[in-house]
Design a protein around this nucleic acid. Structure first.
Lengths: 134, 134
DNA sequence: TAATAGTTTTAGAATTAGTCTAAGCACCAT
DNA sequence: ATGGTGCTTAGACTAATTCTAAAACTATTA
């Protein structure tokens, strides 16, 4: 199993303690936290990290293709370490966000119907109640 | 053709000059403006209206089912006077947002694949280049 | 008509997420 | 060591939105 530092190196991102800490926190996190939540959580363990660095690092890692920013909540960005194509489910009661298979709706499917547009990507959010809340 | 005031009355929303002005601006508007854009535009014609009132009015009209708030841009809400079920297209170059038919992807379609969830609604955003920009 | 209660509107303060800035550090290659 | 590049930092700043408390309306009752 690779360390955060190894992942950074692989993607040609310079390794720093701060970047490794942010990446370590996000890898394996399934909560789609906001950048500010990332800051608060990481800051608890590594009080030497600043808010600006967390925001910068997230931007850097998004550019490097190691994270995705997801549009599922109006007021704050949510960060997703799952960079494969996929959709999201949002529970209307508990607010949990879960990843959903991309096959539910693909860009190819939409291309067939929308001849006038050049379709690059499709993003879907399914809203409802999750297993626990239904 | 009904006046904004008539529409408000139909939905049991008390008629005020401010509400009528906001509704009049939004009806027939296809730009999906943000609340602040609504304020700026309406304020030009009716300088007696305040920012807070525009925000309040939009909330009121959303509750009354006369407007929809759409999640297509992270930093600001967009308001849509089209309250029928539909999806959206966002041009990556010019930023225009266009309404898309709901049939592209329906809640029913998703329900068949997601047995563990109680699906209430699906929202899709198609990204690419519009007719003008492609 | 006058008093009252309940809404709506208002200006501006407050909040929140996120960006910017300018200075200080760290590390690498000369 | 020296210089350069890029990284980190605290705190100021911005933009959208919400909150607040008072003023203005509206409808209703006395």
């Amino acid at each position: 199993m690779k360390t955060p530092a190894q992942h950074l190196t692989e993607k040609s991102v310079k390794v720093t303690a701060q970047r490794a800490a942010v990446l370590e926190f996000l890898q394996g996190n399934r909560d789609h936290p906001s950048p500010d939540e990332v800051y608060r959580k990481v800051h608890k363990r590594f009080p030497y990290i600043s808010r600006a660095t967390v925001y910068n690092t997230i931007k850097t890692l998004v550019k490097a293709g190691m994270l995705q920013e997801v549009l599922i909540q109006q007021d704050k960005t949510r960060v997703d370490p799952n960079v494969s194509q996929h959709h999201h489910f949002k529970c209307l009661r508990c607010g949990t966000v879960k990843d959903m298979p991309y096959a539910l709706m693909t860009a190819d499917h939409v291309r067939k119907s929308l001849k006038n547009y050049q379709v690059k990507e499709v993003r879907m959010v399914v809203e409802g109640l999750c297993k626990q809340c239904r």
